[in-house]
Structure formats: structure tokens, C-alpha cells
Simulated scan of single mutants.
Amino acid sequence: MGLRKWLGRGEPEERTIDPAAYGYVPRQHIRADRAGPAPDFDVVDPLVARGNWPELAAFLRTVPMVSERRFALLTRLGNAATANDAWLRQWLAADPRSVNALCVYAESQVNKAWEIRSSDWAKNVSREQWQGFFRVLRAVPDICAAAMEPEPADPAPFIALQTAALGLRWSNDEYRKLWREISARAPHSFTATHRAWNYWRPRWYGSLELVEEFVETAIAAAPPGSVLTMNRIQMLHEEFRPKDGDERAAFDRGDRVNRALSAGIADAAAADPADIKLPYLRHWLAARLVRAGRHRESMNQFWAVGGYCGAEPWEWFDDPLDQFCAVRAETTLAWEDAGRPTS
């Protein structure tokens, strides 16, 4: 999908900007592998590359049990173990009751199951792929159950179970029970909420009514700065945005979207600047403020995310970096054309 299709416009003009002239990070210095600064990843990535699980385990013990930092680390380590789990197997052999190791194992097995299935439409997945998918995925609840035993108050094993529950086709009642367990241990978790809203989407096991109810309830219950408003912005874009071009344009500039964007801006302003999940909200704000015609506010978000583009919605495109830079230039040029309004 190209920039103009994303913006809902016609053929592109040959216009560009000098990023430095507007205080932007130049293209060659933008990282497409991260959404924003992640000092913890700078610690664990070299340890994983060296297979140094003892130091990895020691570092994880310094991270607060109920924190998005920890949940992000477990997810990243699960992704790393999907490609090469030799270090993880050594860790589990040495400490089979390690909650962190078991959660990483669960995350990696979910990833492997989806690799077997592939991302193709269900109708195109072979019988052998489905069998392999469920064979691997059915082992995950037992892994998570083992991780729940050493520290029952730990939310990480329950969060690790969320994506497996999606693939295993848990009923609404089963998933609600899981969500209650998570909420009791990690209320307002960004990671858990984002995984849960995916379950309640019409394409999975919910509906427009159920997904909106879930997202709005989660946001209403959370304190300012939770960055959960990102889920509303993404939900409106993916689930409620009309298919017709003219209707989309009106929707993107309408009251419902603009209220969501304004709430997102306020949420971002109230968040801890070091919150590892804050950049994810800012990327969505930057992208959708453009479409709402709020170009200066979009530029503010591009300045705030700086030299990173490893997040949705940029990751939906074949070249996330190209899309990020193109939309950044587009909103800047629109601001110039409008006479550089301050708001």
C-alpha cells in the first residue's frame, strides 16, 4: 500500500523535505527495529546473542514483576527463542521452575505454532499445518500452569497464555475468566489489554459491540498516562472506518476520531516519558492526525518518536521506513501549505 492510498488521495506529487530543516531525525539514522528507546533491550540482546542465560536471568530478576518493562522483555525473549532456543533450553534445564524462563518458553511456543500455521487465510492452510499448529499450541497452557505455581501473584504466565487462548479458540466465558486473573494481578497493563482487544475483534471471537465495550471499559478504568487510548485509535481505524473512500474521509475528520485523537494526545502528555509503551501510542497519533488534517499535532508526534519507526501502523507496509518518512514529509508539507498554523 502506498502513501497516497494510505492518505486516501490521488497520484503523488514529486515533493519532499529536508528533515534537518524541520528538526527531524534523518532517514539514515532511523531504526526500523524498535518503536522507541528500549535500554533493557540493549542489555538483553547481546546476552541472548552470546547464549549467556545466567546473566540474562539475573537481569530479569532486577525488573519489577508487575511492569510493562518485564512484559516487553519476556515477549522479546520469546521472539528470540523462536529462532534459536539453545540458551533457553539450557536455562530451563538448570532452573525448571523459573517463572521467567517458562514464560519465555510459552511465548516462543506460541510463535512457533503460528509459524507452522502461517499467516495465510484459514482456507489456504493445509491439514498438516493445522495439526502442527494445534499440537504445539496445546502444550502452552501446561507450560503457563507450571509458571503459575512458584509465584501465584505473578501476572506474566497469565499474559503469556492470552495469545495461546486466541489460537485454541477459547470461549468468551473462558477468556473473561483469564482476563479477571490478569486484571487482579496487573490492572491496566498495556500488553495484556492490547492482546485482549484483539480477541474481542469481530475477526476472532467478538463483535463490534464487544470490542468497543472492552476497549472503552479498559480506558475508563485506567489512570491518565496509561497509554491505553492507543487501543481506541487502532480500533476505530481497523474496525469502524468505512470502506467507501468518501465516507472514510469524513470519518477520519469526524468528531468520533478527533475525540479519540485528542484523548490520545492527553494520555501521552500524562504518561511517564520513559514508559516503554508510550512510543506505540505516539506512532498511531502521528499517522492518524495526518488523516484528520491536524498536521502540526502530527508533527509534534513525529518529533517525539524521533529516530524510530518499528511499530504499527508503519509495520503493515512492505517498507516501514519509507512509509514513516513519506507520511512525515506529507504532514509537514501540508502544514507549510496551510501557512504554518500553530494549532
Rank of each mutant, 00 (worst) to 15 (best):
G2I: 10
L3D: 05
L3P: 10
G8Y: 04
P12G: 11
E13H: 05
E14W: 14
R15P: 06
R15M: 15
T16M: 07
I17H: 09
A21E: 15
A21M: 13
Y22P: 00
G23C: 10
Y24T: 02
V25D: 11
Q28F: 11
I30F: 01
A32R: 00
A32L: 03
R34W: 11
A35H: 10
D40V: 10
F41S: 05
D45R: 06
P46F: 09
R50K: 12
N52C: 13
A57F: 02
A57S: 01
A58N: 13
R61K: 07
T62K: 10
T62F: 04
P64Q: 04
P64F: 06
S67I: 00
S67H: 03
E68D: 08
E68G: 04
F71W: 04
T75K: 14
T75E: 15
L77R: 08
N79A: 12
N79K: 07
A80E: 14
A83Q: 15
A86V: 11
L88D: 12
L88Y: 12
Q90V: 02
Q90H: 03
V99S: 10
A101L: 09
C103L: 05
N111M: 15
A113F: 06
W114C: 00
E115W: 13
I116P: 03
S118D: 13
D120L: 15
S126G: 08
E128F: 09
W130M: 04
G132R: 01
A139Q: 00
P141M: 08
C144H: 06
C144W: 07
P152G: 02
A153K: 13
A153Q: 15
D154W: 00
D154E: 02
P155K: 01
I159H: 02
A160H: 09
S171N: 06
D173W: 05
D173Y: 04
L178E: 01
L178K: 09
R180L: 13
E181L: 08
A184T: 03
F190E: 02
T191R: 14
H194V: 14
R195V: 11
W197N: 02
R201D: 03
G206Y: 03
E209G: 08
E209A: 10
L210V: 13
V211I: 01
V211F: 03
E212M: 10
F214T: 01
I219E: 15
A220S: 03
A222R: 00
A222H: 05
G225Y: 12
G225W: 15
S226D: 07
T229Q: 11
T229H: 07
Q234I: 14
H237M: 12
E239Y: 14
R241H: 09
D244R: 05
E247D: 15
E247K: 13
F251Q: 00
D252S: 12
A260L: 11
L261N: 10
A270G: 00
A270V: 06
A271D: 02
Y280H: 15
R282L: 14
W284V: 03
L285T: 11
R288G: 01
R291C: 05
H295R: 10
S298P: 03
W303A: 11
G306T: 01
G306A: 04
C309S: 05
C309D: 05
F317W: 10
D318A: 06
P320H: 03
D322C: 07
Q323T: 04
F324S: 02
V327K: 08
R328I: 07
A329N: 07
T332H: 02
A338V: 06
T342S: 01
